[in-house]
Design a protein around this nucleic acid. Sequence first.
DNA 1: CCGATTTGGTGCGCACGTTCACAAACTCCT
DNA 2: AGGAGTTTGTGAACGTGCGCACCAAATCGG
Lengths: 219, 219
Amino acid sequence: MNLLNTPAIRNIPEATVARLPVYLRALAALADQGLGICSSNDLASAAGVNPAKLRKDLSYLGSYGTRGVGYDIEFLRYHVARALGQTQDWDVVIVGVGRLGSALCAYNGFSSRGIRIAALVDSDPAKVGSKIGGLTVAPMSELASLVREQGVAIAVIATPGAAAQEVADALVAAGITSILNFAPAVVSVPDDVTVRKVDLSIELQILAYHEQRVRGVAG
Amino acid sequence: MNLLNTPAIRNIPEATVARLPVYLRALAALADQGLGICSSNDLASAAGVNPAKLRKDLSYLGSYGTRGVGYDIEFLRYHVARALGQTQDWDVVIVGVGRLGSALCAYNGFSSRGIRIAALVDSDPAKVGSKIGGLTVAPMSELASLVREQGVAIAVIATPGAAAQEVADALVAAGITSILNFAPAVVSVPDDVTVRKVDLSIELQILAYHEQRVRGVAG
DNA sequence: CCGATTTGGTGCGCACGTTCACAAACTCCT
DNA sequence: AGGAGTTTGTGAACGTGCGCACCAAATCGG
């Protein structure tokens, strides 16, 4: 029923999945401090969450702690990474190499987390052919073949909002099944495609709302 | 009890607040199409949400629709903007003008949403004094005076992870009460300070997790 | 003026996520 | 060896948010 090292991970709640990378980062920080073992309290405060929540989250992966002792940092790190799928690298294509796309491409925090920027695509002929961070920008027409040849499954949309839906359609047609959308627009995709949205101005608008509430009516 | 135009907005759920900017953007899109009235169905599909959810969200702000008719787009737009605090502009200081900070600074989707980049700060002496998008980069030592003089309440951390906590402490000391953190690190702040976190690699890691699940064990 | 139709507002049940509290299990000390 | 002290893992209660379904109100047509 179970392979030796493959504990047939039960369905992990979305909220937990979103926290696992934080735990992974906290574990790395603890390991850098030279620690070999940590308690749920240590890890929880390093990750900025409630200890009970941490333990419940980890319990979805299996029982990788020792009662009365704590968690072996390297051991837990391996298993969290495994649950997240970081035993292999994931290739990502970035569509749109404006300022944001370029910044993402140059960000060097990806490689250590199983993320590899595999290709850059842009519709602007002036940008096609230029090199950014060792990668050559390809035209949109090559998107499908790039995706298929390299087995890319994840795409980032870093275009203006007006182009987002069009790009998303092209990505879906090319076989992409996961999309991270930075463009300020809602994109609709088939049910079997996952879309996550990061909207910078929305985040600031939410903060502004809270500021407005905490102050009186006028600032 | 209530002023004429100030319907003493009851506590709006966080989930609703996070969607209001999306509605605002959808309303702008509908207005650009020349429409003056829209139904909850129209607006919901433009915003990518369930019509019932949209109506419930809007009902937290008040009753701004007309039964049998729909919503007056400009009227609703004004009231949603008001609820979000967009009747005034909010000044934002960006700490860290690396690639991401520069990209944010140049992003021109902020101004139309009540967000104004008021100042740039960096600890690197090589960057201090340089001009980016019409703003001069100031040293960290001027952070507090900048914040106080200009009445800035919102800050963006766009530094490497290692500097994030130090920057957050400085921001809090300077009187900032809302922080948007792009640095890959958890920052701890007093209870009266709001922090929102945007982590690019975490978003990709979450997508990778889903990819791993939908495929078999190996890609 | 009345009824059929359209459309916003809202109460209620369900599911998800969070937290608490406690039992199980391990270590250490005597 | 046994008991005291820790620390994990998890069942259960609680709160929040979501979506269905119903109700109320306004318009349109005759």
